[in-house]
Design a protein around this nucleic acid. Structure first.
Length: 263
DNA sequence: GGTAGACCTGGACGC
DNA sequence: GCGTCCAGGTCTACC
């Protein structure tokens, strides 16, 4: 994201071509400018990818109706919030989520950039723009490289194992996006991936459109404590109890809650 | 089921 | 510049 109203994404198509997508708001929705060579037949693939990334097919009418009664959520409908930006494929989101765990945001950016520069295919004509690496690119690497060159630390074996399983076909992440699996089943499958714990699984469930999972990390505990418990020490269960009344939308409510008045 | 300690890195801080 | 401490979620061993 270069500017607040523009999203730039380096996309690698199924035929491995790399193009640049410049996505911006338009009067009738979203406009996508395609930079680079792409066959006409692949436009549908791009269209589908962008719709998924921006969750354009999801309906938030019910959610907005709920938020309008909560002062802390007054901005939600006005700003058309609710759509979480996600990657074109779940593999990328899982890797990025693992890279958010147990580190600072700057650490996440550093590790992601290193992974992309080390293993991603470059966008034509650019020496600093790369597509997110496909699973097989990382799978062909080794733990030592991921630790020492990409600086993933102890996350290296997790990322390597995930890449190898997706690359070999033993792990089919597309199944998680299908409606044939129950949400609880998807959740438990995510938890079975090494490196994915409660926080990461909840984050991924949100990205998959299941908004009744709470991403409870240290920041959540701090903010909920200050907002609802006068700064007292609280547990993850306390966070769940606070947002339980929002039912299947609780994850989004927590995500979009206006914490700005919290001291 | 609950808990403690290890994992790894970068940033902050004190000297 | 160097050493130390701390924050951040997950895994594993142990009780």
């Amino acid at each position: 994201m270069d500017r607040e109203d523009i999203l730039i994404y380096i996309y690698q198509a199924k035929n491995l071509q790399v193009v640049k997508l410049v996505i911006k708001e338009s009067t009738d929705g979203v406009a996508v400018e395609l930079v680079g060579d792409m066959e006409e037949s692949q436009l549908e693939e791009i269209n589908s990818a962008v719709r998924w990334m921006l969750a354009l097919d999801e309906d938030f009418t019910e959610f907005y109706a709920l938020t309008n009664h909560e002062p802390k959520l007054q901005q939600v409908e006005k700003k058309a919030q609710g759509r979480l930006l996600r990657s074109p494929n779940l593999f990328e989101d899982i890797v990025k989520t693992i890279l958010t765990t147990n580190t600072s945001w700057s650490g996440t950016i550093r590790m992601t950039a290193a992974l992309v520069e080390q293993f991603g295919d470059p966008f034509h004509g650019s020496n600093n723009e790369y597509a997110f690496p496909a699973p097989d690119r990382i799978a062909r690497s080794d733990e030592q490289t991921l630790r020492e060159v990409t600086r993933l630390g102890y996350r290296a074996p997790y990322i390597l194992q995930l890449s190898q399983e997706v690359s070999s076909g033993s792990l089919d992440l597309n199944a998680y996006k299908s409606s044939e699996m129950e949400p609880d089943q998807v959740h438990s499958q995510l938890l079975s991936i090494k490196g994915i714990g409660n926080y990461a699984a909840a984050n991924l469930m949100m990205l998959l459109g299941y908004y009744d999972y709470l991403t409870i990390d240290s920041w959540a505990l701090k903010m909920v404590s200050q907002e609802f418990f006068n700064g007292d020490q609280i547990s993850p269960q306390d966070v769940k109890d606070v947002f339980e009344r929002w039912g299947k939308w609780k994850g989004l409510v927590y995500w979009l809650w206006n914490w700005s008045d919290t001291k």
